[in-house]
Design a protein around this nucleic acid. Structure first.
Length: 791
DNA sequence: GCCTTGAAGTTACCG
DNA sequence: ACCGGTAACTTCAAGGCG
């Protein structure tokens, strides 16, 4: 019989000395099913040394056959960096043997290198059989007994799955969102000691459950959670930082209680896997925090903030409890209800985030080929790489090894000096997908690169400006093929989208798909210049930016010769006065000259620059204001300073009245002096980017971080520290930086710091260019000290 | 020993 | 654990001065 299966998860087991791949998913009838695949065997390649014949190399492998259970040794024809190559394919019985066998093969004097020996077995299967997670496949199967697996149907495959690219529908997925709260009277909770007190759950069936501990005993709570998961039997489990907190906590808690967290569809517990995420066999465990990291607009990525940003739940409409205070709400019977509400709001937020994020995650998974639970956890580089690996296999290209290399810097893009001041009626012209298109049009790729010592006729190659790197015009290189496909498929999707109702379900699916394609295409240039990349080639990245610089320089000259004044430009954009016919002409010229598309992106009624690059603000026709690079959008300035700057910008751009802005600033300063500004607006957030001891300089946020540690909080690399500046003896700012959580009274605040180092700089950044002097900003109530007066 | 100054360290941004 | 280019802040140490 034939079934159609939407693939949710993949793993493998060794059964009776045979590897068995398991494809977990949902059938077109809506059944949860697993398809077992036998017969696929692990393999890798050995490349003989240049002076060794392939026969001799094969001969030298023979002694390894019995020890490592080698099944076959074959001569095969492949391509390596575009060049035909004959290599030895070594197939063995069991996946765990591969690492040892690989080492043994590498030791042979006949062998130069080993390729593709570091690809996990089930991923190898997905690559070779052209199978895509989160996509439909048709498989010829036979029914088998269910025996111990939590699914409706178990099958054995009797054909290879066939990818059904036309079938874009996503099945009805059972989603379970969860969140845990822990008892934490002594700072950060410790699983060996502190129980879980609440597990909140929300499912797509509409069920919301707040499971609670029996006072300080969480055994029954965890039991109930396990039962709930298994009885609801979700396809997808979502959480917020569940890979970083909830799963490790629950697992360690279970260990302490001698319990098993058996919630997988094969009966096991979550297990830590590649990319540090937790894998739950047969389900997809997705950590939405991984996707929140890609939302630069949200500076402090707490669940509340992300939920508010995505329009899921406003902070003003939910219960908020300071993390360190949770235990008080648990211990106090009158407050406990509030804690339940808090837990409910958290899980509602997670569920809502899931609705916003999962459609994209699903498309990303199906495009790059990583299972849904891994695709979020994998870094951008690995996402690109899996896509490339799949494509390489299709092209008969061998996958290069991951090798350690030294970091070699190279030149990047051009940034123009802006013309400072206020400009009216300015259009921003953007090259669409500049780097991918340069790579395509110049055929830039590791396999088309011609090294300096190689002689080749000049008309056969493209030569990069400045750096002189040469790339063969033909045949199409790896990057060209891969990027060409990404962009082409994206264009096809966008064409279909135009025929659809933007509110339709189909439209949403395609929208997310084209977005995922764009993300991968745009990351490919960065990938090729990443020293950790399998397909790294410095010359590839270097040539791409060199052509980019040339194009933007020529574009500027073309604009100038058309009589268009260029105000600013960065990498792939130029800002010019909007004179419609000239701009139109310029776009046509560019398209003709470079074969690249340029689109008038934004029109600013007014745009303001200081002398600094990468920082400006502008007024759009619809009245919105863009702020780029300035303090107002930076996460490491106090909300107060950001608000002041934003307001100043708004007044200046919309009303053109700097004196009104001055009044606003000095009123704000007065308000601060009069303690009318809440402490929350004075918090400065900065990330801890390394271990505290590794810092060479005594910075404010590290000093604050140390104080947090002293107070019993746990910190991890990457955490954001929120601190305020308080009145304290000490020369350095760091001496006055206090975690805001530990500051009880607004009177402790060093008001002068906030005036001189936050409000005034943020406001002056703009107002300086309107002739305003710092002294004009200070509040009416301000009395200069004698020292300052004479100083 | 004190003060100035510029380099270094650090973070977060732009495209 | 995708790139280079950039601004801005604080700390720190060197250099100049007396």
């Amino acid at each position: 019989m034939k079934i159609k299966l939407w693939i949710l998860d993949v793993n493998y087991e060794v059964v009776g000395n045979e590897p068995e791949i398991r494809l977990w998913g949902i059938t077109s009838e809506g059944k949860r099913a697993v398809v077992k695949v036998r017969g696929f065997k692990p393999y890798f390649y050995a490349v003989p040394k240049a002076n060794v014949s392939i026969e001799k190399a094969i001969g030298s492998l023979k002694p390894l056959i019995s020890q490592y259970r080698i099944l076959s040794i074959d001569r095969v024809q492949r391509k390596y960096y575009g060049k035909p190559i004959e290599v030895i394919k070594i197939t063995c019985q069991l996946p765990p043997t591969v690492p040892q066998l690989r080492e043994a093969v590498l030791k042979l004097k006949t062998i130069e290198d080993v390729l593709e020996a570091d690809i996990r077995f089930y991923m190898r299967y997905l690559i070779d059989k052209d199978i895509y997670p989160c996509a439909w496949h048709e498989i010829e199967v036979e029914r088998e007994s269910i025996r111990g697996l939590s699914v409706d149907e178990v099958y054995r495959a009797i054909s290879d799955p066939k990818y059904l690219s036309e079938m874009t529908r996503i099945p009805d997925l059972k989603v379970l969102a969860f969140d845990i709260e822990c008892y934490n009277p002594r700072g950060t909770p410790k699983p060996q000691r502190d129980p879980v007190i609440i597990i909140s759950v929300k499912t797509d069936s509409g069920k919301e459950e707040i499971l609670t501990a029996d006072d300080h005993n969480d055994r029954n709570l965890i039991r109930s959670f396990i039962d709930l998961v298994n009885s609801y039997d979700p396809d997808i489990i979502i959480g917020y930082n569940n890979n970083g907190f909830d799963w490790p906590y629950l697992l360690n808690r279970c260990k302490a209680l001698h319990m098993k967290l058996n919630i997988s569809r094969a009966g096991g517990s979550p297990a830590q896997s590649v990319y540090g995420h937790f894998s739950i066999v047969g389900r997809a465990n997705v950590d939405l925090y991984d996707f929140a990291k890609d939302m630069p607009e949200v500076k402090v990525k707490t669940l509340e903030n992300v939920a508010e940003y995505l329009g899921v739940l406003k902070k003003s409409e939910r219960v908020l409890i300071e993390g360190s205070e949770l235990y008080k709400y648990w211990d106090n019977p009158e407050k406990r209800k509030t804690l339940y509400d808090y837990a409910r709001d958290d899980v509602k937020s997670i569920y809502g985030l899931g609705e916003k994020i999962l459609p994209f995650a699903i498309q990303l998974s199906s495009i790059v080929g990583l299972p849904l639970d891994q695709v979020g956890a994998a870094s951008v580089g690995f996402r690109v790489e899996w896509y490339l690996m799949k494509q390489a296999y299709k092209l008969g290209e061998l996958i290069p090894n991951r090798v350690e290399r030294p970091y070699t810097p190279y030149k990047g893009a051009i940034v123009l000096k802006p013309k400072p001041g206020l400009h009216e009626n300015i259009v921003v012209l953007d090259f669409s997908a500049m780097y991918p298109n340069i790579m395509i049009s110049k055929n830039i790729s590791p396999d088309t690169y011609v090294p300096p010592y190689e002689e080749v006729s000049p008309d056969e190659v493209y030569v990069a400006p400045e750096v002189g790197h040469r790339f063969r015009k033909k045949p199409p290189g790896f990057y060209k093929q891969v990027l060409g496909k990404l962009l082409q498929v994206r264009n096809e999707i966008r064409k279909i989208m135009k025929t659809l109702d933007p509110h339709s379900y189909e439209y949403r699916v395609l929208y997310e798909r084209q977005r995922a394609l764009k993300v991968i295409a745009n990351a490919t240039y960065g990938y090729c210049g990443w020293i950790g990349a399998r397909w790294y080639k410095r010359e590839v990245a270097e040539a791409t930016t060199a052509w980019g610089r040339e194009i933007i320089k020529k574009t500027i000259n073309m604009a100038k010769s058309l009589g268009l004044e260029v105000i600013y430009g960065d990498t792939d954009s130029i800002f010019v006065r909007y004179i419609e016919d000239k701009v139109k002409k310029l776009c046509e010229l560019i398209e003709k000259e470079f074969g690249l598309r340029v689109k008038p992106d934004k029109i600013y009624i007014k745009v303001f620059f200081t002398e600094a690059k990468k920082r400006y603000c502008g007024l759009l026709p619809d009245g919105r204001i863009d702020v780029v690079g300035l303090e107002a959008i930076r996460g490491d300035w106090s909300e107060l300073a950001k608000e002041v700057q934003e307001k100043v910008i708004e007044i200046v751009l919309k009303e053109g009245d700097p004196y009104k802005a001055v009044k606003y600033v000095s009123d704000t300063i007065s308000a601060l002096r009069n303690k009318k500004i809440p402490l929350s607006k004075l918090i400065i957030w900065k990330s801890v980017t390394k271990e505290l001891d590794k810092y060479e300089v005594k910075t404010a946020h590290v000093a604050a971080a140390r104080r947090l540690l002293e107070a019993g909080y746990r910190l991890e690399i990457g955490d954001k520290i929120g601190y305020v500046i308080v009145k304290r003896p000490g020369e350095k700012l760091a001496d006055k930086a206090m975690p805001y959580i530990l500051v009880k009274d607004i009177d402790e605040i060093d008001v002068d710091y906030y005036i001189k180092k936050q409000i005034i700089p943020a406001a002056m950044r703009i107002l300086e260019y309107f002739g305003i002097k710092e002294s004009q900003l200070e509040g009416a109530t301000y009395q200069k000290s004698l020292l300052e007066f004479f100083g």
